[in-house]
Design a protein around this nucleic acid. Structure first.
Lengths: 197, 197
DNA sequence: GTCTATATCCAGATAGAC
DNA sequence: GTCTATCTGGATATAGAC
């Protein structure tokens, strides 16, 4: 029972460095784009030579994977932290705003999690499972707002992701599209009411 | 007046080869992704060595640029060929369908024209000007359907591009989202009528 | 764990013979 | 116009000394 704490300390140090590397990778990605992260630059940023990174990650893809799983975890926490107003309209708007804010506040994370445009990167099975569970959570959230049928879900996700996408593409630091969210919710819910009559 | 035809013939041959190269580039892009077009592969495909391509284009970016301008030209022609029904709803649906079809029928072209995710490629000033003129044409088309105020335009473009984007990302060869277009037009126009009351 | 040195591969672009 | 040969520079990853 004497060596265990030492092992723990080593493991902790190791873990801390891994986190440091991932953090630096986010920084590089925000500066040069996701595809612009090179192991040379990354090593430089954390103060080691590129090959030393292989003591912490078996490949570059593993670093992307760590970023991906960190992103999904953050998204899940954000969803869980939502309060759920009684009014369905408020409920839908709350979740829509949460999603839009999450996307807009970090475009690179949005790209990694939701756009999947990175060459040669597929999330590991483990990371992917977490992501799926998170999307289920999102679907539950919409169900709580009364949206359960497939066509409605598809129309709503198109509308919401369209707003986010236009915002990020055409006005990344403003609110030109996100401010339309209340209007979009009104439009969508009114249409659904009409459809049910 | 004797040498001119010869010069013409040379120019024509040159132009034909340029077109052949661009055509091959589209093919490669569809197979390996836009970023996956290499001059080596491209040369192989048209039956010459990579350096020979420089007799036809001054750089790789110039090839992308030729593709870009070809794409915008095709889009412009598509818009011009639209008939414009009297009924505003039909008019909006017609243009929406035309846009969605144009995007979905060639995802790589969509990516090049509308997503701009290519590393180190910016359209030349000339190509860009054509693109802007084309977008103006699109805006006129929406104006003809009665959409002129900024917020409405933004909401509509978000909805339409959201549908296209979800279609391409999640069901590239199906119609899961594009079939919602009539529903989307209904929803949007009903909301506008309500807003005007 | 970290380093240097290197392997391996691929890219775009250029030089110069023919 | 087309070729071969090469330049220049980038990437990920590995070998092996310390």
């Amino acid at each position: 029972m004497l060596e265990e704490p030492i092992g723990d300390r080593r493991t902790k140090r190791h873990e801390a460095t891994r986190r440091e590397i991932v953090e630096a990778a986010w920084g590089l990605a925000r500066e040069n784009g996701l595809a612009g992260v090179s192991l040379r630059d990354l090593g430089k940023r954390v103060g080691m030579q590129a090959p030393s990174l292989y003591s912490y990650f078996p490949s570059k893809a593993a670093i992307y994977d760590a970023m991906f799983s960190e992103g999904t975890r953050a998204f899940l926490e954000r969803l869980r932290a939502l309060d759920t107003p009684r009014d369905p309209k408020r409920r839908l708007l709350t979740s829509a705003r949460a999603f839009a804010e999450f996307c807009v506040e970090d475009p690179v994370r949005y790209q990694l999690l939701f756009q999947r445009t990175i060459p040669d990167f597929e999330p590991s099975a483990e990371s992917y499972a977490t992501a799926i569970a998170t999307l289920d959570q999102g679907r539950d959230l919409l169900a709580a707002a009364g949206i359960t049928d497939g066509a409605s879900l598809d129309l709503w996700t198109a509308l919401l992701t369209g707003i986010v996408d236009q915002q990020l593409s055409n006005d990344p630091r403003g609110q030109r599209w996100t401010r339309l969210l209340p209007d979009a919710v009104d439009m969508f819910l009114a249409h659904r009411r009409k459809g049910r009559r």
